[in-house]
Simulated scan of single mutants.
Amino acid sequence: MPKQFARLVDAERSTFQATLARVSDTSVFAKATVIASAEARFIVAEQRDQLGLAADILLEPQGRDSAAAVAVAALHAAAADPQAVVLILAADHVVPDTVAFVDAVRRAAAGARAGYTMTLGIEPDRPATDYGYIRRGEPIAEAP
C-alpha cells in the first residue's frame, strides 16, 4: 500500500484523504483533481468516496515525475476556467493547522491573480537539489 493511502498519522483517514478534506470547502476551492497512476485508480476512488467528496481523477499511463502531472492538472483546470489558479499538493503531507493552511492559500491565490508565482512550504534549513532552488524575492504588499 503506498504510504499516502495508509492511515499512518490519523487512525480515521489516510494522508491522501486528509489532503482531499483540506481542500473541500467549496467557498474557497474548486473541485479537486487527483493525478494518479493507473494502478492506484481504484484506491483513489474508494478513499475519495469514503469521504463523500467530489474529485476528478486523471490517470497517468506511466509515471513521468511531477512536472508532467502538474502540466496535465493545469491544462485540466484551464479547460474548465481559463483564469483558474491552480494549487498543487502532495498527497502525503501532514498539515495540522487547516485554518492557517486555508488562510495561506487564500493569500497565495491573491498573489497568483496579481501575476506572481507563489509557493507554500516550510522554511528550508539547508539547500536541497531534490526540490530545486528558490530565491525569495522582496515582500509584496498584502492583497486587498
Rank of each mutant, 00 (worst) to 15 (best):
A55R: 01
P127R: 08
K31M: 13
A141F: 10
E60M: 11
Y131C: 12
V85T: 09
A73L: 05
P124K: 02
L89S: 03
R136M: 11
A74Q: 15
H93W: 12
G121H: 09
R64L: 12
A110F: 00
A30W: 07
D56L: 03
H93S: 08
G111E: 14
S27P: 02
L51I: 15
A32M: 01
I35T: 08
A78C: 05
A71I: 02
E60S: 10
P96Q: 12
I43E: 05
A91H: 00
T129N: 10
L20S: 01
S37N: 11
R135N: 11
A74R: 14
I88F: 11
D65V: 06
A45C: 03
R126M: 05
P82D: 14
V28M: 06
L51E: 09
G52W: 08
V94A: 09
L89I: 04
P96W: 12
A67I: 13
Q17H: 05
E39P: 01
F29P: 00
V99Y: 06
D103A: 12
V70I: 14
H76K: 06
A112H: 09
D92W: 08
G63Q: 04
R126H: 06
T129M: 15
P139Q: 11
G132P: 08
S37R: 15
G52Y: 08
A73I: 03
A80H: 13
P96A: 14
A141Q: 05
A114D: 13
E39A: 13
E60C: 05
R64K: 13
A91Y: 01
L59V: 13
A54W: 08
A54L: 12
A109E: 07
